[in-house]
């Protein structure tokens, strides 16, 4: 495999919605014969937790998020509630859990892979997962909180991974 086939991703976001892009791009990258490393730092560390059930998506301060019902009559499913509901309502306790549940329903309806399945597939395809050691300590995580097969290292190790190849993404 030539050096040009190397690809790296820096994953920095830890919400349920943003957990998908790094794993989608990484697994597809390997399928397209690339050698992929994901460097998880700051909130991106959440994506490596054994228990991802606490990951949430929030409409609060997220005006670009379309919100449509995944079930109900056709006319209802067409309505985008995103711009119609005042943002202040999303600060009510429980709304994050509700919206996350609705997003999971929508994804299942559209045949989108589950987060854990995508992550498993990345590991099966030998995507290298590196967790930023500094932020693991900063946020008080324990290494046992994370799935097996994760390496712990720092920014210099990212550069070592990114030294070759011409495909490097920040997410």
């Amino acid at each position: 495999m030539s050096d040009n086939n190397k690809m790296t991703i820096i994953a920095t976001k830890g919400t349920f919605d943003w957990a998908f892009p790094p794993f989608i791009i990484a697994s597809t990258g390997v399928a397209m014969d690339k050698e992929v490393t994901i460097f998880f730092t700051f909130y991106g560390l959440n994506l490596l937790l054994k228990d991802t059930s606490k990951l949430r998506v929030s409409p609060l301060g997220n005006p670009g998020m379309p919100m449509k019902m995944p079930f109900g009559p056709k006319w209802l499913q067409k309505i985008n509630f995103g711009p119609k509901i005042p943002n202040i309502l999303w600060s009510i306790p429980g709304t994050e859990a509700l919206v996350t549940w609705l997003m999971k329903k929508t994804m299942a309806k559209h045949g989108v892979a589950k987060l854990e399945d995508l992550r498993d597939m990345c590991q099966e395809f030998d995507v290298k997962f590196i967790a930023c050691e500094m932020t693991v300590e900063l946020f008080g995580f324990n290494k046992e909180d994370f799935i097996d097969g994760v390496e712990f290292a720092g920014a210099a190790s990212y550069f070592d991974e990114a030294a070759t190849g011409d495909h490097h993404l920040y997410m």
């Binding site: 697994s27 597809t28 399928a31 559209h110 045949g111």
Partner: peptide, 14 residues
């Protein structure tokens, strides 16, 4: 059938 991006590609590769 019924699967969405990137699953058809991943399954094809496998």
């Amino acid at each position: 059938s019924g699967l969405n991006c990137p699953l058809p590609i991943l399954k094809t590769k496998k």
